[in-house]
Design a protein around this nucleic acid. Structure first.
Lengths: 247, 247
DNA sequence: TATAACTCGAACATTGGTGTTTGAGTTAAG
DNA sequence: CTTAACTCAAACACCAATGTTCGAGTTATA
């Protein structure tokens, strides 16, 4: 069996295998959250027994994968802050998407797998920090006036993740060229987040879709309950379906 | 057993039950694509055996659910065309979202379930028509100059579906108030689809995120393969994960 | 090189979902 | 009111995934 006693006494190849397994899990679960242990073991190039030697259960593998993918997200965000610390939030967001939209989308898949096996509390613990960093970026943009504030920052953040996850699914399904994905994503996202002019720029059409009319009085009244702290899984009677949030 | 011989000889309660089952399937699969036959039977208020009396397999139930939800989408689109036939595409899109975003999102879930059990060909047959109608609406908007044409219509359509599906997941998870969902969705979507000004409206910041710079030369070069006709599932080695498309 | 650490195929038990059969009870409809 | 149609709980066979055990073989490392 692996994991004899102290963590320092493990053999080198054992540590490498554990590493390969986590990476394989991120890859498999990112593409297909319902991937089986056999899938993961094969992708890692190890036997099923070896996998269980390193991780006592599916839950353990998923948790390790989620932890690592979030850790990577943190690294990316750190690098971004180093470069563009107080730069234009639009530019920071653009760089974030271009440099790591794949990572984020992958993380969404892993997160979905996690929601099927891990406790909501554990997920929240792992996931809350990077989630809030993106949210903070959006809020900063709102304060600076470069992002719209007629919609709650939490919704803008969620919509961003939905588009990223969807784009990843499109790429996996051959419906979107990975090369132009970042350009397409930023094209959508930056436009969606930009401040909205009261009247439209072009065309003389009659009713004029006024994006968000009655939203002025109470801009972020409700719909912003979570995104603050604990309240993760409370409502929703039996649904435990897809979600997709991440760094 | 149900379904004796001719379709006209079925008893009234039998037809009603079959109906309830399909509705229950739409509801269950819409919220959780992996819902089991037991879940569906319970939601329909019938026994498991009765369910199998009406539908010979899970595949049959899923197909019936997908067919009905798509049929409903067609009805919605018909009603929309009646009212706003050649109206401003922005207004049509806004009405479409406000009147039936829930339906569309539900359909995404059912479609995801279908992708796990039905043949890609069958899915495409059922799904192609409403898919193209939304696409046509977007293309019409592009031609009229009220929607951006620096991104392919297929990508705008896909992104729309991603946001709708994500919003549904948020509502199911208690992260989004169903009341304000349509307003939030249209706020995002209409802004994302609007024609992009070369320079931004506000703020004097330096680098100025130029939404889609290098996209002019070859506007919809690649990334539009499907959305035309057949090519549905061809690429993507083993992924068969979420996708989300519909009426 | 000797030993503990590690890998791994095969085989087993368990669980949860699917699909079927049986047989008794209920109900729509002629 | 009579019968064919329908419902349904219980029990069965089947399958795929999880998690475990065994025992033989390989390899890092002191």
């Amino acid at each position: 069996m692996v994991r004899p006693a102290a963590a320092g006494t493990r053999r080198a190849d054992a540590r490498q295998n554990a590493d390969k397994i986590v990476d394989a899990a991120i890859d498999c679960l990112g593409r297909k959250p319902a991937a089986s242990m056999v899938d993961i073991a094969q992708a890692a190039g190890v036997g099923r027994v070896t996998l269980y030697g390193h991780f006592s259960s599916r839950e353990a593998v998923v948790e390790a994968a989620l932890a690592r993918v979030i850790e990577r997200g943190q690294g990316t965000l750190d690098g971004l802050d180093d470069t563009a610390a107080e730069g234009d939030p639009r530019e920071v967001l653009r760089r974030l998407i271009e440099s790591s939209w794949m990572l984020i989308a992958q993380a969404s898949g892993v997160l979905e797998a996690a929601q099927a096996t891990l406790s909501p509390q554990r997920i929240h613990d792992l996931h809350a920090v990077p989630e809030r960093r993106v949210l903070a970026l959006i809020e900063r943009g709102q304060e600076q006036g470069v992002f719209r504030d007629d919609l709650p920052a939490a919704w803008l953040s969620n919509a961003l993740h939905h588009v990223l996850k969807g784009a990843a699914a499109d790429v996996n399904g051959g419906r979107l060229d990975p090369e132009q994905a970042p350009q397409f994503i930023t094209g959508i996202v930056l436009a969606a987040a930009a401040p909205q002019a009261p009247a439209a720029p072009r065309a003389e059409a009659t009713p004029q879709a006024e994006a968000a009319p009655h939203a002025e009085a109470a801009p972020q009244a409700k719909a912003t309950p979570q995104a603050k702290a604990t309240p993760r899984a409370e409502a929703a009677p039996q649904a435990e379906e897809s979600n997709g949030r991440t760094s």
